[in-house]
Amino acid sequence: MFTRITRRGMLSAGALAAASTLVLTGCGGGEDALDEGGDDRSIVVGSADFTESQIIAAVYAEALNDADISAETRPAIGAREAYVGAVKDGSVSVVPDYSGNLLQYYDEVTAPLTEDEVMEYLPQNLPEEVEVLDASPAENKDALVVTRDTADEHELTSIEDLAAFCSEMTLGAPPEFQERSYGLPGLKSNYGCEPAEFSPINDAGGPLTVQALLDDTVQVADIFTTTPAIKQNDLVVLEDPENNFLPQHVLPLANKDALSQDARDVLNKVSAELTTDDLIALNDRVSGDEKASPEQAAKDWVADHDFS
């Protein structure tokens, strides 16, 4: 299929982009990044271009530093094409990623999968230069969310309940929801839910999506489960008994030659201790009223745990 060729093209291009960014910035410790081996002093923790990824990357770097392994962050490298390319060519040592989406990226997943299945298929599908470390129980996945009023009115607790009302509702979600297998196609095939209208909102389930839900511009929205606004506005996350949404546990995606065993141990320990509630709290500090920097939020979380 043509998508594969495009992807490969974009991958190498992504690596080029990362490399050129490196050359152009010419600072930030990037000088070791191109010729690193298993040397701990050169760990570069990259992140995707959204906030939670930057927070988790800061947590990784902070935890490594806490264990006397020198590490630094290179935030907001871009979309998966860009940062996966950077990990492959070694200019970035490790990035936080999500199990389901990462698998989806390498292998067109159509059947609903459980977390165990995702973690079984994932390593087989990765390119040979990269590996994933342990997955964390912390998870952030797409979910359909409605207001408490809507939930009460139609007695909704799961997407199965929603199916009967879909045809009267406008669904707000990021643009890709229209086409991805977990999006409109999945809702239709797994639950028979076909919304009356689709409103593409490009803030990754952020403030505009929440606002649209609250002022009834949309009646159901695709919002990430770790969004603090869910609790703040007493929104109801609908259950997904058919596993329409892939499990999305947080896990480090690393270059095979970039991490020492000590560094792996630290990152595995971070994964073991990080919970979904932690993620919500971290997101709340950074994107909520406090507007803490990702670094500060990460520092405080690491201080509450022991990695040294």
Binding site: T6, R7, M10, A79, E81, G172, P174, P175, E176, Q178, E179, R180, S199, P200, I201, N202, L208, A212
Partner: peptide, 18 residues
């Protein structure tokens, strides 16, 4: 980029699904 139509829709939607 917000939620409206126009020719940009193809750009933003295309970008979203690569």
């Amino acid at each position: 980029y917000i939620d409206l139509g126009g020719l940009g829709r193809f750009l933003i939607d295309g970008l979203a699904v690569r």
